[in-house]
Design a protein around this nucleic acid. Structure first.
Length: 757
DNA sequence: AGCACGCCGACT
DNA sequence: GTCGGCGTGCTC
């Protein structure tokens, strides 16, 4: 009795094992514990065999069977197999990527426990006593009857728990910025109690809800109604269809998703909705929870492994009708799928940047194809690929042109920064127009967003004596200065190397070091300088490194505790801030100069999106876009919110330059210890591909040094394959790599790359 | 990916 | 003499 098993090892195919006497025959999709070389791993059964081609001695017996029935349903296994092949990844690692994390190992435990913290009588007493005294002055370490050594954090926890006497799970507290350690300290003082609750962990207990925003009974606009009717009838055919829902920001796409999912559900089928990584706010979650109650599973980055695992089980057991989640949720073990929604389908976060390098949107389409389901791709700024498919009739196209309540789009002003430099010198960061607009918002008590898609304080350290720049020793990039003030450090954004910013040039010992270029940290400082009274905060990856701090920052902004929020594209996506009436873009050019075929598309998308952030509430909005290229079509057309015109411009470029959607691409990057080695290896691959190139209908460009020529101490060379048949390109590449197994391990193959940088 | 095997430099 | 550097090869 032989079985074929996918093991979590890159570049390994299926392996054959024997089921020994005394173990049940595992179902396809079940997890099994198997020996692999000197170690023991958990794999997934993909099929069985009556006989093995291997000699008897070569086939090892499995050690254990973890599931009585399929852990991964058959259709999801088939989807994973498709994904592995299409994206040239190993079956084993793809199947692993499909599973919720931390499922290798133990048997499924039937019960889960959750630590719940609740305030005790002593805690309430301490809180009352504390409230009676002056909070911070002399209340501190008084030698009274009670040790009043509560920190601000501890006090805040007690306040919160006093409001919810039933207690809050520790993960919920963690999400609000209260570390487990804080709770533990309070527990030691008996101010809170900790108990273990046996529950089905649910990350969206009512306590975590922000104010429920949705008015679900609100009538749809005529446009929304006809879009919904059209989509419902498409879903009703129970055939594979793809619809592009092209709706400007604020046109009410989410309400359509909700009602469509409800319609599909009442027809006895389930729905899966994908959202970009940062867009899954508690607000979106609570919206779905209000509509679908317990039968919705919401997956977001804050979920623990255990929570994900619980949800996987609930979905698999048919307790869930609607799944909302990020990229990997496309593999959720839902039965009877009738609808897949991909919100903000153009978003780059749908592409996984490690193997398997799949695009969640495209896998969703394939899943729908297998299931006979409807796919709805929603976006205000569709990807070139999707719009092209819509224009050519492959996808149904549904347009929402008007915003809900007919709110006008923001008035956009383009500021030519060359004029600012001429007027006020080359150090200008915030233009006169933006300064005036910020001041106006402060006077009126309204909020502003300021966008710069570049982190850090200064982008480079330059020596005026030798003209050298401080570079990363491991990567071919200059170091970025972080943290102004006493101890600024220069950091590499790729490998995280960091040093103190030197006072003398490390190359020539010259004393004239200059920091050039600026990022969000500098903009934050500049806005504080310009508006001394304003409450300014920064939102970027550095500012929200700690878990929970993103939510905390966003809710402070929503509550009006912050006047100006400076940040990277994180501030542009998903969030709905009704009190923002001004959006400033410090430099629309970040990214435009990159040698990437999607540079214009990305700039257009980001600018359109950020301009859409202004004026989502009662007041109308304004956007001010600073740029050195005021006439660039991405800037111009984004400011006019003219998607069709942008598409026409861009599609012409793609057609003449032979880029997607007119050809398919595979990007290949070879790593080596030396630059010459990387180039030689890449050249060798090109040569091997050359034989297949003629009849394969593709072209190989390169080898060339990769745009990031050195990364983490390794040199990189690149080649780009362009053609119409991905299958042929992939096969040619795979056979070339099969001839050079030593090279294969140092090679990354990226099918349908989102960026070739 | 791990993990072992294997062949060359600086140390108790 | 050995501890350990990471190149190369293999995993049913």
């Amino acid at each position: 009795l032989f079985i074929r098993v996918a093991v979590p090892v890159p570049q390994l195919g299926l392996l054959t094992y024997r089921v020994p006497e005394g173990l049940p025959r595992p179902a396809v999709g079940a997890r099994v514990v198997v020996p692999l070389g000197p170690r023991i791993v958990t794999g997934i059964v993909i099929g069985d065999e009556t006989a093995s081609e291997l000699s008897d001695g070569a086939v090892k017996p499995i050690r254990d069977v973890l599931d009585e029935e399929a852990f991964v349903p058959a259709d999801v296994i088939a989807l994973a197999a498709w994904t592995a092949e299409y994206y040239a990844a190993g079956v084993g690692e793809t199947v692993t990527a499909v599973l919720p994390p931390k499922t290798r190992g133990s048997r499924v435990d039937a019960h889960k426990t959750l630590r719940v913290a609740a305030i005790t009588a002593a805690g309430l007493g301490a809180l009352d006593a504390k409230r009676g005294t002056t909070p911070f002055s002399e209340g501190g370490a008084k030698k009274g009857s009670y040790p009043f050594s509560l920190t601000a954090k501890q006090l805040a926890v007690l306040e919160l728990l006093a409001g919810t006497p039933a207690g809050l799970p520790t993960p919920v507290l963690a999400a609000r910025g209260f570390a487990a350690d804080t709770i533990a300290r309070l527990a030691r003082q008996a101010l809170v109690s900790l108990r273990q609750d046996r529950v089905n962990r649910d990350p969206f207990t009512p306590q975590t809800f922000e104010a429920p925003p949705a008015d679900l009974d609100r009538r749809l606009t005529a446009e929304q109604t006809s879009a919904l009717e059209r989509l419902s009838s498409l879903a009703g055919t129970r055939e594979f269809r793809v619809a592009l829902l092209h709706g400007v920001t604020g046109s009410g796409k989410t309400e359509i998703y909700l009602r469509l999912a409800a319609a599909v559900r009442s027809g006895g089928r389930t729905a899966l909705m994908l959202v970009p990584e940062i867009a899954l706010t508690p607000a979106v979650a609570s919206l779905f929870r209000q509509t679908f109650g317990e039968r919705v599973a919401v997956q977001h980055s804050g979920l623990s492994d255990g929570e994900r695992h619980d949800q996987w089980q609930r979905i698999r057991h048919g307790d869930i009708d609607v799944v909302v989640g990020t990229r990997s949720a496309v593999f959720a073990p839902l039965n009877r799928i009738g609808l897949l929604i991909v919100d903000e389908e153009h978003d780059a976060s749908y592409k996984q940047e490690e193997s398997p390098r799949y695009n969640g949107r495209d896998v969703a389409i394939v899943r729908a194809q297998h299931a006979g389901a409807l796919v709805v791709l929603g976006s205000a700024t569709p990807s070139m690929e999707s719009y092209y498919n819509a224009v050519s009739g492959k996808y149904e196209r549904i347009v929402l042109e008007r915003r809900v309540l007919d709110r006008p789009l923001a008035a956009v002003t383009i500021v030519d920064m060359r004029e600012e430099y001429a007027a006020a010198g080359p150090d200008v960061i915030v233009s006169r127009a933006l300064t005036a607009a910020l001041e106006r918002r402060l006077e009126r008590g309204e909020q502003s967003l300021v966008l710069l898609n570049r982190r850090g304080f200064a982008t480079a350290v330059f020596c005026r004596q030798c003209a050298g720049t401080l570079e990363c020793p491991n990567c071919s990039v200059s170091l970025v200065v972080h943290g102004e003030g006493s101890a600024p450090r220069a950091r590499c954004h790729y490998c995280n190397y960091s040093v103190r910013v030197p006072t003398k040039c490390p190359l020539c010992a010259g004393p004239y070091l200059e920091q050039t270029g600026f990022g969000t940290e500098r903009v934050e400082a500049e806005v504080k300088r310009i508006c001394p009274g304003a409450r300014v905060a920064r939102l970027d990856r550095d500012a929200v490194r700690r878990k929970g701090s993103l939510d905390a920052l966003l809710s402070r902004f929503r509550d009006g505790a912050i006047d100006v929020l400076v940040g990277t594209q994180m501030i542009a996506k998903g969030h709905d801030f009704p009190r923002v009436t001004l959006v400033g873009v410090i430099s629309a050019d970040v990214g435009l100069g990159l040698a990437d075929f999607r540079a214009s598309e990305r700039t257009f998308q980001l600018l359109t999106q950020v301009a859409g952030r202004a004026g989502r509430g009662e007041q109308s909005g304004e956007a001010i876009v600073q740029t050195l290229y005021p006439t660039h079509y991405s800037v111009q057309l984004a400011c006019r919110q003219d998607y069709p015109a942008f598409y026409e411009r861009e599609v012409h470029f793609r057609r003449t330059m032979r880029y997607p959607p007119f050809v398919s691409m595979v990007n290949v990057v070879v790593r080596a210890r030396t630059f010459a080695g990387a180039m030689d290896d890449a050249a060798d691959l090109v040569q091997r591909l050359g034989q297949a190139e003629a009849e394969g209908g593709f072209r190989v460009l390169g080898p060339a040094p990769a745009p990031l020529g050195k990364l983490r101490g390794e040199y990189r060379a690149q080649l780009l394959v362009k053609g119409t048949s991905r299958k042929r390109m992939r096969e040619a590449l795979m056979s070339a790599l099969a001839e050079r197994p030593d090279l294969a391990r140092r090679t990354v193959v990226d099918v349908d790359p989102i960026s070739v940088l």
